[in-house]
């Protein structure tokens, strides 16, 4: 087991190296107009150095004067030493901006995940146990519909219904107009109120996949021989499903849910942007569109690490949860 984990970790590091090499190369091939604009702006300040001098200094600062490979190793070294540089767009250290925003996304993700599990798994099981009935069709079609739902269109519909027609929620933002006048508890409630629609969106767009996954796996388990045995020996249906079948369905479920845990930190790009919720998705979207290379590089590296860690967790959990799987 330990050997397996070490091997997987080693592989993950290599994959990370190449992923970031591709991304770094792409970034370097983009026009460096941002640096030029910044140099021009700085050279216009009184008593400043000339444009060329600024240009040279900025290029050096961002490692742009090296070749791509050398520059990449420079970036990688800085990254592993924990120096992520300053965000060009937000003009604060990248890690500071990241720390300010990531926790909001994390809490949103956690709440979403809770509801996702509570809603999707029972529905998936119900659909599987009542295969080929109206309930099954309804749930299956609903699941596909949720998967097919374009996030931005769904958000627009929610806004039209709840914000414009009913007026229950604000259209944008994390805090209301009189946020400053509220006490601590009131401020917390205000934030929660503004997070209702974004979290609702996240839940709806994420439950479809899990619902289908649960149904497929439950169906597979229900067709297994040990379920037939359980039924044959006269156990009541309730016990068969919730004691024998469900526990076996949990194996793939735990694996997939464990694997998606790191994803809680990745932020919801569309939802946060459309609701102007200052989480990591919203923040990085604006940094990326503005051509903020330090922040974008950091965010992409962060996402790559999250994916790798997620895969690792899923693989390890699979080995841990399923006694049939034994890894040398």
């Amino acid at each position: 087991m330990r050997k397996y984990i070490i091997k997987r970790l080693f592989l993950a590091v290599i994959i990370f190296f190449f992923v970031m090499l591709i991304i770094y190369t792409l970034m370097r091939c983009l026009p460096t107009s941002y640096i030029e604009a910044m140099a021009r702006q700085k050279s216009l300040q009184p008593n400043s150095k000339s444009f060329e001098e600024w240009m040279a200094q900025l290029n050096e600062m961002y490692g742009m004067d090296r070749g791509i490979i050398a520059g990449y190793f420079h970036w990688l070294g800085d990254f592993f030493r924990g120096s992520f540089g300053d965000s060009w767009y937000y003009t604060v250290p990248v890690i500071e901006k990241f720390n300010d925003t990531v926790w909001l996304s994390f809490w949103m993700g956690l709440i979403t995940m809770f509801f996702e599990l509570v809603i999707a798994i029972p529905l998936g099981i119900i659909a599987a146990t009542k295969q080929y009935t109206k309930t099954d069709y309804t749930i299956s079609v609903l699941a596909i519909a949720f998967i097919s739902l374009p996030t931005f269109f769904f958000i627009a519909l929610l806004k039209l219904l709840f914000s414009v027609k009913l007026g229950w929620f604000d259209l944008f933002g994390l805090v209301g107009r009189n946020y400053e006048q509220l006490n601590a508890w009131g401020q917390f409630l205000d934030k929660c109120h503004h997070l209702v629609l974004p979290i609702l969106t996240l839940i709806v767009i994420s439950i479809g996949g899990l619902m289908r996954y649960t149904r497929t796996n439950m169906l597979e388990v229900l067709n297994a021989d040990y379920i037939r045995t359980a039924r044959a020996k006269g156990l009541d249906e309730h016990k068969v499903i919730y004691k024998h079948a469900f526990r076996n369905t949990l194996i793939p479920l735990v694996t997939i849910v464990g694997g998606s845990l790191p994803g809680l930190f990745s932020g919801a790009l569309f939802t946060e942007t459309m609701f102007s919720i200052p989480g990591i998705g919203y923040t990085s979207y604006h940094a990326m569109v503005a051509g903020d290379i330090p922040f974008s590089m950091f965010y992409l590296a962060f996402l790559a690490i999250l994916t790798l860690v997620g895969n690792l967790i899923a693989d390890i959990l699979y080995a841990v949860v399923d006694p049939r799987v034994r890894i040398a």
């Binding site: 503005a290 974008s296 992409l300």
Partner: peptide, 26 residues
């Protein structure tokens, strides 16, 4: 398969956004 792993790991949506913004700039 390792190449596939690498491609799987590339965050595609953020990358597409960055490339789109760059194409805007150009």
């Amino acid at each position: 398969m390792r190449i596939v792993d690498i491609f799987y790991c590339i965050p595609s949506m953020p990358l597409l956004i960055i490339l789109g913004a760059a194409m805007d700039a150009m």
